[in-house]
C-alpha cells in the first residue's frame, strides 16, 4: 500500500472543503444573478396598465400582459382539473390497494418513466392527439399536455404520503367497522393531506412555467383568452418567448422582462409558501 504524507492528505482535505463551499456559493451567486437580472430589467415597465391590458399585435408599441396571465391561469387550472382526479386516485390505489401486484408495479414503473419524458415530447403527443384530430390549436390542448406532465408528479407524492402513514391507523379504523373507502377518504386522507397539498401546489407551479408544450398546442394570440376550447390561447411563457427571442424591438423586450418578473415572483411565492407549510406540518407531526 502506498503511503501518503500527512501534509498532502491534510492539504487535500482543506482544498476539498474549500471547493465544496465554493461550489455552493457559486450556485447561489448564479441564482442571485439570474433573479437580479429579472428584477433590474423587469421592474421599470411594471405598471397597472401592464396587468390590465391585453397584448398588442407584433410591432405595435405598448400593450399589456393581462391576457397572457389570464390564459396561463386558465390553461393551468384546466390541466389541474384534468390531471388531479386520476392522479390522486392512482396514488391512493398504489398505496392502499395495489401494493406489490403486477399492475401496481407496472403503473409505478410507468409513472417513473413519465417523470422523465421531456415536455417537448408531451407537446408533440398533445398535438398528435388533440390538434390534428380537432383541426385547430386550443388552450384545452395545452391543458391536456400540462396535465400529462403533472400526472406522474402528483401520483408519486400521493403514494408517498399515503404509504407513509402507519398501518395501525388503518387497522383501528377497520376494527371500528369503517369500510376501506370510508377510512381512506376521511381519516387517512386527513393525515396525508398537508403533504399531498404541498406536492400538488409544487406540481401546479412547475407546469405553469412550461413553454415548450404550449408551442405545439395553445400557441399564442393577442386577444383575451375567449376561445379556450377552440382557438389559440395566450400564455405568459409563450409571450415571454415571442417578445424576447423572436423580437428585435427593445420595447417588446421590456414587456417580456416584466412578464418574466411577474412569473418569477408568483412562482417563487407559491414555492416558498408550499414548502414552508409542508415543512411546518411535517415538523408538527413528528
Amino acid at each position: 500500500m502506498k503511503t501518503r504524507s500527512t501534509f498532502f492528505r491534510k492539504t487535500k482535505d482543506s482544498l476539498m472543503r474549500a471547493f465544496s463551499g465554493f461550489a455552493t456559493s457559486m450556485a447561489l451567486v448564479l441564482m442571485a444573478w439570474v433573479i437580479f437580472t429579472i428584477v433590474r430589467e423587469g421592474h421599470s415597465s411594471i405598471s397597472a396598465e401592464l396587468f390590465l391590458n391585453a397584448s398588442k399585435p407584433f410591432g405595435e408599441v405598448g400593450g399589456g400582459i393581462a391576457n397572457a396571465l389570464l390564459g396561463t391561469v386558465m390553461i393551468t387550472a384546466g390541466a389541474a382539473a384534468l390531471a388531479l382526479p386520476p392522479a390522486l386516485a392512482a396514488g391512493i390505489w398504489l398505496a392502499e390497494f395495489g401494493k406489490d401486484s403486477l399492475l401496481a408495479r407496472a403503473a409505478r414503473f410507468t409513472v417513473n418513466v413519465m417523470m422523465g419524458v421531456p415536455s417537448v415530447i408531451v407537446g408533440l403527443f398533445a398535438y398528435g392527439v388533440l390538434v390534428t384530430t380537432t383541426g385547430h390549436f386550443s388552450g384545452f390542448a395545452g391543458s391536456f399536455a400540462l396535465a400529462i406532465l403533472m400526472f406522474p408528479v402528483v401520483v408519486r407524492t400521493t403514494e408517498d404520503q399515503f404509504s407513509g402513514i402507519g398501518d395501525a391507523l388503518r387497522e383501528s379504523l377497520l376494527a371500528l367497522g369503517a369500510s376501506r373507502a370510508r377510512s381512506t377518504l376521511t381519516v387517512i386522507w386527513r393525515a396525508a393531506r398537508s403533504g399531498v397539498v404541498t406536492g400538488v401546489l409544487l406540481a401546479v407551479a412547475r407546469v405553469s412555467g412550461e413553454t415548450a408544450p404550449l408551442l405545439f398546442t395553445a400557441l399564442f394570440a393577442d386577444t383575451w383568452p375567449t376561445s379556450y376550447f377552440s382557438g389559440p390561447t395566450p400564455s405568459a411563457p409563450v409571450l415571454i418567448t415571442s417578445y424576447t427571442m423572436d423580437s428585435p424591438f427593445e420595447s417588446m423586450h421590456r414587456i417580456g422582462w416584466s412578464a418574466a418578473l411577474a412569473m418569477a415572483v408568483i412562482l417563487l411565492a407559491v414555492n416558498i409558501t408550499a414548502r414552508y407549510f409542508g415543512a411546518k406540518r411535517a415538523a408538527k407531526r413528528k
Binding site: 439570474v34 429579472i38 412555467g209 413553454t211 415571454i240 427571442m245 416558498i272 414548502r275
Partner: peptide, 24 residues
C-alpha cells in the same frame, strides 16, 4: 436555507434561464 435556495433554483421556468442566457 441553502438547501431550500438550491431547490428554488429548480422552480424558475426554463424560458427565464433562456432569456438570461440570451441577454446576459
Amino acid at each position: 436555507p441553502v438547501a431550500h435556495a438550491l431547490d428554488l433554483l429548480a422552480a424558475i421556468p426554463s424560458v427565464i434561464y433562456g432569456m438570461w442566457g440570451l441577454f446576459v
